[in-house]
């Protein structure tokens, strides 16, 4: 049990002492999760809107595909992205393997279906009277879309938080695509995996605490935005 207590003490030590390895992992985590969340929002919001707002042929099949994508294991995404951005792969020229950008691409693939699905559901659940109200107040198509999106901003916020939580905590993609390079692509989760492999539970717990703290701060700042 000692190592659990030791973990708490170590966590505080690592953060206060400004331990370079810890802080670079923290920054790498924040940068890559934020980047992939933004990318997935950028791609997922319009797709989710289209899926939730319009009725079209094949919509049901798209939803099925999307739901399947929600269950994509991170190691599979990691493998796929690895295969694509390795020098031998189709995107090898870009030299993205073992970079944060590479991880961000993988995590975007991970978060995109989450954002899309939540946005689509939110849009689908828009009060039926909203559109009628907007039309009756004289809104044109563009006004309706803009106002609808603004009306469901809390739902979109929820999508962002969920996506952030997912990419913040995933380890498969970061490990496979990032290569767990110390000071560069080592994220908190891959560092935890490494420390556990080494049998250094205290260090692992310390990093886990840092991760929870980040998640807490993110949720806190979003709930501040949301305050009703």
């Amino acid at each position: 049990m000692d190592f659990i207590v030791a973990g708490f003490i170590k966590a505080i030590e690592l953060l206060i002492s400004g331990d370079r390895a810890t802080w670079t992992a923290v920054w790498a985590t924040i940068k890559v999760s934020t980047g992939s969340m933004l990318l997935s929002l950028g791609a997922g919001l319009p797709c989710g809107f289209v899926l939730g707002y319009f009725d079209f042929k094949g919509k049901k099949h798209l939803r099925t595909i999307l739901d399947t994508m929600l269950a994509l294991p991170t190691v599979f995404i990691g493998l796929a992205v690895y295969a694509f951005i390795s020098r031998q792969g189709p995107l090898g020229e870009l030299g993205l393997l073992f970079t944060l950008t590479g991880i961000a691409i993988g995590q975007t693939i991970l978060a995109f279906p989450i954002v899309t699905a939540i946005t689509a559901t939110t849009i689908e659940n828009i009060d039926h009277d909203l559109k009628l109200t907007l039309v009756s107040l004289g809104a044109g198509r563009r006004n309706i879309i803009a106002t609808c999106l603004w009306e469901v901003r809390y739902g979109i916020l929820a999508a962002a938080v969920t996506a952030y939580g997912r990419v913040l905590t995933e380890v498969g993609i970061s490990m496979m695509v990032g290569g767990n390079i110390k000071y560069h692509t080592r994220t908190i989760t891959t560092a935890i995996a490494l420390e556990t492999n080494k049998g250094l539970f205290a260090d692992g717990i310390a990093l886990g605490l840092v991760l929870i703290m980040i998640a807490f701060i993110v949720n806190l700042s979003l709930s501040f935005l949301r305050k009703q």
């Binding site: 924040i30 940068k31 890559v32 934020t34 980047g35 969340m37 933004l38 944060l100 950008t101 935005l225």
Partner: peptide
């Protein structure tokens, strides 16, 4: 305005990510 502040902070972080590459 709060949202714009938030989003621009996010974009700033994003640029940092790209720069370090």
């Amino acid at each position: 305005s709060k949202i714009f502040t938030f989003i621009s902070a996010l974009i700033f972080t994003m640029i940092m990510v790209i720069n370090t590459q």
